[in-house]
Computed example of a mutant assay.
Amino acid sequence: MGRLARRRLRFLAVAVFITGVPFLVVQHNMITTEDLQMCAEIRADLQPDVESDFPTVKGVRPRIPHIIHQTYRNETVPFILREYARSFIANHPDWQYKFWSDADGRHLIQERHPYLLQTWDGYQQNIQRADALRYSVLYEYGGVYADLDVENLRPLDRATMKYSCIIPTEPFEHSIFLYNSPYLINNAFIMCRAKHPFFKQVLLNLVKTSTIQTTTADNQVMMTTGPLFFTNEFNNFMGIDQESTNIYRKKTDWSSNSPYFYKGERKEDDEDGIYVPNTRYFTDEVDDYAAGVVENMCKDRFRHCDNVLLQRGCVEAEARGLNRKHRLYTFNGDAANERRATDNRKRICK
């Protein structure tokens, strides 16, 4: 979720890689009987269903500080966004709440990361500064970062105990059908300990990506500070081979109900590890625009039998539906689905 720009999918006869995320593209040949049989046998194996609450441990100090960070370009936050912010405050009366404006962020960058100040000042869009700021405050203070259009549904305390860093993915319907990619790491909601080496890496590489040029402003954000940049940084940190097209390799740590995709060799609860949770806990809602794309592409899914990833996405969508209600163990809701769908429609159809 968060302010995620979409791009139009184009099926070509080659495989291309954008910021390290493999985007498989296929050539539509005549479908054979063997293709149809394979297509019919595909099962959704993106992640297990959720039958229990978020993994936690008792009797220990929280590994993630009880601090909530939110940001906006100034202190005049629109009323509706203030209501969503209050949902976090109401559910966490004993937590510290820190609000950051762009001016606060620049002061933090100047004081703690002066090498980044020129890059910060050079950003052409506010969202780029918002992205850089969330990475900075999480590195310096740790805690929870949430976009202002994320609504909190229940306390996050149990999620702070077992893992040192928790970073969800986008709903798989977004990454598969809008990006033809097995996963996309989300930067709209993040939980992490202070001084985690992943965010040190992220901050250093913001300077390197600041000169990337793209054809649209939205893609500029995605590739310099946003989810494509963030996914690339995740792949680098976790030691995931960015040139490999074997995107169906399975995870090596099976101690939780996290998604099945490969996330490197480090244990999920390692001090420097990153836990990617099941989307049912944090980021399970499919926006309205993406839902329309899914329905259109899956109407005749046998036409895409040569794209196993798309087939698995169709099976997943058919099994779970696209209009998902908040479940028993869901922490957050997407409070801006209609607005986000409108934004995504404009961006991907440019």
Score class of each variant (00 low, 15 high):
residue 43 R to Y: 08
residue 181 S to F: 05
residue 246 N to C: 11
residue 53 D to E: 08
residue 279 T to Y: 08
residue 134 R to Q: 00
residue 55 P to H: 07
residue 84 Y to G: 04
residue 96 Q to F: 02
residue 87 S to H: 01
residue 74 N to M: 05
residue 43 R to N: 11
residue 326 H to E: 10
residue 227 P to D: 02
residue 255 S to H: 07
residue 70 Q to Y: 15
residue 94 D to K: 09
residue 177 F to N: 11
residue 314 C to P: 03
residue 51 E to H: 14
residue 194 A to K: 15
residue 101 S to V: 02
residue 94 D to V: 10
residue 184 L to I: 06
residue 199 F to E: 02
residue 349 C to V: 13
residue 324 R to G: 06
residue 231 T to V: 02
residue 194 A to C: 08
residue 186 N to R: 07
residue 273 G to S: 05
residue 235 N to Y: 10
residue 196 H to T: 04
residue 315 V to I: 11
residue 21 V to Y: 01
residue 175 S to V: 03
residue 166 I to L: 03
residue 144 V to Q: 06
residue 349 C to Y: 10
residue 313 G to E: 03
residue 113 H to D: 10
residue 63 R to C: 03
residue 127 I to Y: 08
residue 226 G to R: 01
residue 323 N to K: 11
residue 112 R to N: 07
residue 134 R to G: 07
residue 296 N to T: 14
residue 14 V to W: 11
residue 293 V to K: 04
residue 284 D to N: 15
residue 177 F to H: 06
residue 301 R to A: 05
residue 239 G to S: 06
residue 27 Q to Y: 13
residue 317 A to L: 02
residue 100 W to K: 06
residue 296 N to H: 10
residue 37 Q to E: 15
residue 263 K to Q: 15
residue 156 L to V: 10
residue 176 I to G: 04
residue 32 T to W: 03
residue 129 R to K: 08
residue 131 D to Y: 04
residue 167 I to H: 00
residue 170 E to Q: 10
residue 305 C to G: 05
residue 129 R to Q: 01
residue 203 L to S: 02
residue 25 V to W: 13
residue 23 F to P: 04
residue 85 A to G: 08
residue 65 P to K: 00
residue 69 H to A: 02
residue 310 L to R: 09
residue 282 F to S: 02
residue 267 K to V: 12
residue 294 V to W: 01
residue 13 A to Q: 13
residue 215 T to V: 14
residue 20 G to Y: 01
residue 136 S to N: 11
residue 311 Q to M: 07
residue 173 E to I: 10
residue 216 T to P: 08
residue 298 C to F: 00
residue 245 T to R: 13
residue 241 D to R: 03
residue 243 E to D: 15
residue 330 T to S: 13
residue 300 D to N: 13
residue 135 Y to L: 12
residue 281 Y to H: 00
residue 90 A to Y: 07
residue 18 I to A: 13
residue 90 A to K: 09
residue 254 W to G: 12
residue 104 D to A: 08
residue 52 S to C: 11
residue 160 T to V: 07
residue 96 Q to P: 01
residue 166 I to M: 01
residue 104 D to Y: 11
residue 314 C to S: 02
residue 321 G to I: 06
residue 198 F to N: 02
residue 309 L to Q: 06
residue 179 Y to M: 03
residue 111 E to L: 12
residue 181 S to K: 04
residue 77 V to H: 01
residue 299 K to C: 04
residue 79 F to I: 13
residue 204 L to F: 08
